[in-house]
């Protein structure tokens, strides 16, 4: 088997004196959607932050054959990992168009960036009409989609998607997951998604990890996990 695109081995992370991850290991292969499930405080968000370098971490993190364990967030972004953080991951004082341009900040070549902008806007047609609107004035769902669109502008090899459903209406959440699925099918986009809503996440992902107090408690294919008794009781609620 080829080396996975992303591989975490015994990764620990801490906020000041508080340890949030006690050794997380996971892999993501090229072209996969992988979900990370777990209760509040299980370390889902911290796992993504450990990958993008926005939290102090130790342990081995390899991406596309390179160790990224000691790299800064900007260096990680330059390697092609787009982190869509929890909440409204947009620069609210800048316009929609500027947010998109920033997504491609580390890339060169004006022509291919403009091409990508058209391609990305095809997935979010309404964004095109609001190019000059300040991002902060968009609705929550729109901002979440803008954040996703901005991440795509990086032409990322991996998207880290943190809790896209947070505080949004079910219809909007479904739309976001539909687009993520579409991107994965058509363009082979690789996604590591953290989600509270386990039903949705397991539907979109092919595999998933369940975190409990900073450790991986369970892992497996989405189907297997969906049938797992404890997952069903704790996270699916039936």
């Amino acid at each position: 088997m080829a080396e996975p695109l992303l591989q975490l081995e015994e990764v620990e992370a801490r906020y000041g004196p508080v340890k949030a991850l006690h050794g997380v290991s996971l892999t993501v292969a090229e072209g996969e959607i992988v979900a990370v499930l777990g209760a509040n405080g299980a370390g889902k968000t911290t796992t993504l932050r450990a990958i993008s370098g926005t939290v102090r971490r130790s342990g081995a993190i390899r991406f596309a054959g390179k160790s990224i364990a000691g790299r800064s967030p900007e260096a990680v972004a330059r390697l092609g990992i787009a982190h869509v953080p929890e909440g409204r991951g947009t620069l609210s004082e800048l316009s929609v168009a500027e947010n998109l341009r920033l997504g491609a900040y580390v890339r060169r070549g004006r022509a291919s960036i403009q091409e990508d902008e058209q391609r990305v806007l095809a997935h979010f047609p309404w964004l095109g009409d609001r190019r000059n609107q300040r991002a902060g004035t968009l609705s929550g769902g729109e901002q979440q989609m803008l954040a996703l669109a901005r991440a795509l502008m990086l032409r990322p090899r991996l998207v880290l998607l943190d809790e896209p459903s947070l505080g949004l209406a079910p219809r909007v959440v479904a739309e976001i997951f539909r687009i993520v699925g579409e991107l994965n099918e058509r363009e082979g986009l690789t996604v590591l998604v953290v989600e509270q809503n386990a039903i949705l996440a397991l539907e979109a992902a092919s595999r998933a990890y369940v975190l409990e107090v900073g450790r991986v408690a369970l892992e497996g294919g989405s189907e297997t996990l969906r049938r797992n008794e404890s997952v069903r009781r704790s996270y699916l609620g039936y």
Binding site: T54, E93, V106
Partner: peptide, 18 residues
């Protein structure tokens, strides 16, 4: 643009590689 992004939200700006 990068300077403005940095002023408005440094953490987010790092995530796009600034």
């Amino acid at each position: 643009l990068a300077l403005r992004a940095t002023a408005s939200n440094p953490d987010e700006s790092r995530l796009v590689g600034i």
